[in-house]
Amino acid sequence: MKIAVVGKGGSGKTTTSAVLARGLARHGHRVVALDCDTNPNLGLSLGVGDRETQRLVTLREQVGESDTEHAVSWAEILDTYGTDAPDGVRLSVITRIENPEPG
């Protein structure tokens, strides 16, 4: 199941997404949390910490700078631009949701 979370900045989108992701994982579901924000900070609310959240941002910025826009698989995105959050949630920071080719 794919769930999108929208709303005004500061309304609690990120907290809602993170708590929901962690809750789903605790219920035994496999969960991928995708941060589609151009200022990604979902990692903080998921509990991966400030450093790791910052590391993912830096990784993604480097993708933005190199002009090689090659089609990458979901697996590659989750692997390269992702990190493991508590409860088994996999967090990945993606630039734009329509860019990657489904793997």
């Binding site: 990120t14 200022n39 900070n41 903080l44 609310s45 400030d50 910052q54 941002v57």
Partner: peptide
Amino acid sequence: TAKSLHAAAR
């Protein structure tokens, strides 16, 4: 808040 600081730093 940590998130607001993140945005500000960028």
